[in-house]
Design a protein around this nucleic acid. Sequence first.
RNA 1: GCAACCAUAGCUCAGCCGGAUAGAGCAACUGCCUUCUAAGCAGUAGGUCGCAGGUUCGAAUCCUGCUGGUUGUACCA
Length: 581
Amino acid sequence: MENEARKAAETVSAVLKKLAAEWGLETADPADPVPGTPPQEDMGDVAFPMFVYAKQLRKSPVEIARAVASAVAADAGYRAVAAGPYVNLFYNLAELAQRAVASADDAAFGTVADRKGQKIMIEFSCPNTNKPLHLGHMRNDSLGESVSRILKAAGADICKVNLINDRGVHICKSMLAYKEFGKGMTPEEAGVKSDRFVGDYYVKFDQWSKTDPTAMERVRRMLVDWENGDEEVRALWKQMNGWAVSGIKETYRRTDVSFDRFYFESETYLKGKNDILRGLEEGLFYKESDGSVWVDLAEIGLDKKVLLRADGTSLYITQDLGTAVSRHGDWPFDRLIYVVASEQQYHFKVLFYVLRKLGYEWAENLFHLSYGMVNLPEGKMKSREGTVVDADDLLNELALMAKTEMESKEKSSGVEDVNDTAEKIALGALNYFLLSKSPTKDMIFNPKESLSFNGETGPYLQYTATRITSILAKYEERKGEFEGIPFCPEKLSSDEERKLIKMILSYPDQVSKASAEMNPSVLTAYLYDLAKTFSQFYHDYPVLNCDDKETALARLKLVRSVLEVMKKAFYLVGIPYLKKM
RNA sequence: GCAACCAUAGCUCAGCCGGAUAGAGCAACUGCCUUCUAAGCAGUAGGUCGCAGGUUCGAAUCCUGCUGGUUGUACCA
């Protein structure tokens, strides 16, 4: 639809120049008109405000609008009206309808070329192996997965990576607690999902360490043993990490999140040191008297930062430096996107600066996709106080709600697999909830209210799609009635139909916008608007039951295109499509 | 202290590279199922867009200041 707007703008621009000349103001050179959207459907398809030209053309905006509207209509064949100081144009609807309907058969519709040729690596999720995923991780996972799909639809070559935090003091805590209290139990024996099993010992450590002051010291010793490659500690570490990672991967499968590469911190935590030492030699960094290495951040308006400890060991930022460098070696990206909470803005600012300083050209194209926290109505989620919302528990609860609702409405007999359908409704509800808000902002999750299936939610969208699917199924049964009926685009003339046609054609623009902003909420908002418009149409106008067969067929084709677009957009924001619910 | 982000209806949020009457959903109240799925549709009510200036024909949107909130500013990750 942007092409239409551009064309209209060019027409208006030409007319403005012509009018300027006619009025004896050849030197005026009016600025390019900016297309907008009229507030109401029946007012027109594109709007151009005429205020800006008033001074130049020495006439009131209202007079200019009147002159432009009639000239546009005469010169270019647009239907054009002056509405006060605005010029509103109408597109050729029949032609748009043709194209909207054809889009349903075009598999490439909605794939754009904005990022063609770009190799983008995107890092997200990055869980710790000492506890199961919670709602905070889910926002990260949803965002990362959705943005990956959007960038791919915009033509990029994508590599999704996950860095598993599988070492450090926090990992040793659950290990030590297991060693102390676990009695060699396995998750299978305990009948607990394996990542939860590990997480329970992490919680246990916290309680234990409050009564036993030696606990913390023993954890520190364990970490030293781990670093020295102590066989017993390493064996325990492997076993517990295996449990944690397999449980986490199960949740990924459940939420349809996937990765092209996994990195493990235990394999990358020593990286980066050489780069720092090289930088020191080149005079980019400096050494303190105690032997620690620092970078001065005055250039970017910050203080200074340690890059290597006095004893030569590395820090979080050191290994992040090394990891970025080795990743670029593994898969030479044009762009690397880190999907990480906004708390770490400072860290990434410093990281990117240091990489640039080290002379890596690709460091210009690193991007921190920063997102806000998920809070509860009472405030932050705190694992120690047990207020974290566990990912699996939440999905289970949602799926149960969906199932209960289906049963109470006696719909469960109509669907193929009730549990599978319930699971997909749960996922749709959750992904819509997590992605429909601006990524940068913190969000509040209210367990009682946020889980609704009514109103502006994922299930509403899924429900809309099932209604269309149902019409299409009925059409297949009654196909004979429509034999030989031609497609008559002019039969689609209601406000709702006009709006649907334009919305279908604007889908590629929405993908472009979502890609440019790296913001899935562009698409959730679009989907809601599309579904809402369809529902209004559906309520007021019969499709197959319409007496006039030509109208029926035209509506059927329109509705089919709406469904196809919905399915494509569903995929990009992780909402499963259902034939029935 | 400094820095970044945020402030829109009772609640959760859109809108923010300036344009026509600031939009949804939830909660409250009212209608609509013998016709393609009522997880729906329609309606009522609810707003000094944090405050004060500025720029502009025009500001929720841009600029400045202020107030309030969140986060960060570690030889933790």
